[in-house]
Design a protein around this nucleic acid. Structure first.
Lengths: 164, 164
DNA sequence: TTAACTGATTGCGATTTGCAACTGGTTGTA
DNA sequence: TACAACCAGTTGCAAATCGCAATCAGTTAA
């Protein structure tokens, strides 16, 4: 964990924290897939991360204050990972990357549907979804009630998957 | 250049193209620093990329249709690199990363000023800047005239640097 | 003629990656 | 109480990638 920074450029500094092939995927799974435990992140990932890489990245993200870790009261060995406020605020970055990928790359239909909805929903939907994440990860009650963005995205995904 | 994709997720696919420590910095320099030649990208970069990495990443970006390369008529060996439309459309990704880095990381004052203005300007300013990039990289005349976003960002940067 | 400049390429050690097996402990069930 | 399944990681090792320095061959201006 050497902290030699290459420059004080905000884009560079951001890349030094999350600019690898796995960190943003872990955050994606925590945001959109409700993965909160090590095993969930390990086995339910689309891409198949290996356990040593996952452990290493979780450490890095903890150090960078993007996630936190608490003990799970239901199981002495289980840890619950949560996004911090600054972790939650990476959502717009992911949303823009998803929108770009959806537009220009060979995205699969199942996995693209969320990106499409999120892109169409725009910054307003992102803000709403971030409020929901603040509720589930930080325990901050959200104002708006009713069908959540998270639920809508999940429902859209499942409707594509279950279409025979 | 093996094209084994890990999953059809738009975020993952985007990361497979630009998810390394250098590609987005090269694109940043082309967008905000007007770097169009190999030497400019090599020597005028804040971070000091090495020539083999630069050559490799330019190849990857060419393959991914994010940039193009033309011969410079003024010099038989010189090449001019330009952003394509999909390269230009990475601006919102960079802008969001810059905004996040500006907010949460120890950004230097000189290099942070552009991020601040771009963040405050929001999507409207991004669209304007993208139009300017379409003009300088694709030769598409932009509608709006007057002081460009690029000029404004550059002027703000210089005013911070020259402040004694 | 020659020095500086052009876009790269090469060699090589250091770091990072990714797979597989394994560790030490906890929990549920019979 | 025994035991299998589950938990969060760790370790060993081979392969790939990274990054620095030196170098290359062609081009241009003095």
């Amino acid at each position: 964990m050497t902290d030699d920074q290459r420059s004080g450029c905000p884009i560079n500094l951001t890349l030094e924290v999350v600019g690898d092939k796995w960190s943003l995927l872990i955050i994606r799974d925590m945001m959109f897939g409700n993965r909160r435990h090590f095993r969930e992140l390990l086995t339910k990932s689309e891409e198949g991360i290996s356990s040593n890489i996952l452990a290493d990245r979780l450490k890095t993200l903890l150090d960078a204050d993007i996630i936190t870790r608490e003990d799970d009261p239901s199981h002495k060995q289980k840890g619950i990972y949560s996004l911090t406020e600054q972790g939650i605020e990476l959502l717009p970055v992911l949303a823009q990357m998803a929108a770009w990928g959806y537009k220009y790359l060979p995205v699969s239909e199942e996995l693209g549907i969320r990106a499409r909805l999120l892109s169409e929903g725009g910054p307003k939907m992102w803000a709403e979804f971030m409020d929901e994440l603040r509720e589930s990860h930080l325990g901050v009650a959200r104002r708006k009630k009713g069908p959540s963005v998270g639920e809508r995205l999940q429902a859209a995904y499942e409707s594509v998957v279950n279409r025979t």
